[in-house]
Nucleic acid binder design. Structure first.
Length: 267
DNA sequence: AACAATGTTCAGTC
DNA sequence: GGACTGAACATTGT
């Protein structure tokens, strides 16, 4: 589920409801999600502290903690979401594709939990268990955030190499935050073939990609998630490009299923 | 039952 | 060492 827009929603939920509450219990028993920390290590580092600030870069989130405590890194993986619960049982929900239609309060897939002194909690709910919780995560290795990347930084990230442009857009070290669906939207909006080597892109094409990236991220964030992107309506078998009515085609590019319009995104 | 899934990482190759 | 590719990871839904 989560690309940059969903992660930003989750960060906002933590910022709004998860800060300044004393931590009295932590369930870090899932040693896969909490790797490389052994069970109890994250718990011991957080007990008695508060989360004081929630940050995000690309798809990575992290929270500062009080009293000179460690940074708590949170990653939603392929299917995670953050739930903030209040003592009275009400929930602030970071939103989740996988939970649409499912009763609220269904936390069968909780993989990590922080309980607060006021009776509330912060939960990482993640059916596919590819999310991750760790202390002091490395965030400096990420590229510039896709929501705010400047034209100059964007040009630099796409200036050299032979990788398909879609693979480069998905590379979190180059640009942080673009996932499979955003990438298809960005390339379709820019009318560029996803398999084109970045080295062959012209200056105007790179600038189109930059504008499309900023636009797609802003639009999806405002509308509530990447599932609201225009391309979702025709990014499927039998889908027709709304610009010219041609059937979309698909193949694996950059290691991921990719849809494009063979008419105006020609190789 | 087989396959794909909105993500990351690691081993292998050039 | 750097760039790049494809498989692996854990689990669920179609």
């Amino acid at each position: 589920m989560p690309e940059l827009p969903e992660v930003e929603t989750a960060r906002s939920v933590i910022q709004r409801g998860g800060l300044k509450r004393r931590i009295v219990e932590v369930d870090d028993s899932d040693s896969w999600v909490c790797r490389p920390h052994p069970p109890g290590e994250i718990r011991a580092a957080l007990l008695g502290r508060e989360l004081t600030e929630a940050h995000r870069r690309g798809k990575s989130m992290w929270c500062e903690t009080s009293g000179g405590g460690p940074v708590l890194g949170l990653h939603l993986g392929m299917s995670g979401k953050i739930v903030i619960a209040a003592a009275d049982g009400t929930e602030l929900d970071g939103g989740d594709y996988w939970d649409r239609g499912r009763a609220t309060g269904d936390h069968r897939y909780t993989r990590f939990a922080v309980s607060f002194a006021d009776g509330g909690a912060l939960l990482l709910v993640d059916p596919r268990r590819l999310g991750r919780v760790r202390l002091d995560p490395p965030v400096d290795v990420l590229g510039p955030d896709a929501a705010t990347v400047t034209r100059g930084k964007f040009r630099a990230a796409l200036s050299a190499g032979t990788a398909p442009v879609k693979a480069r857009l998905l590379d979190q070290h180059s640009i942080a935050g673009v996932g499979n669906l955003l990438a298809d939207q960005i390339l379709w909006q820019s009318r560029i073939y996803p398999g084109r080597p970045v080295r062959e892109l012209t200056g105007p094409e790179v600038d189109r990609l930059h504008r499309a990236t900023r636009n797609a991220v802003a639009a999806a964030t405002a509308a509530g998630g990447v599932h609201t992107l225009k391309i979702m309506k025709f990014r499927k078998p039998g889908g027709l490009c709304p610009r010219d009515g041609v059937p979309m085609v698909h193949a694996t590019i950059g290691g991921r299923t990719t849809y494009w319009c063979p008419r105006d995104q020609s190789a």
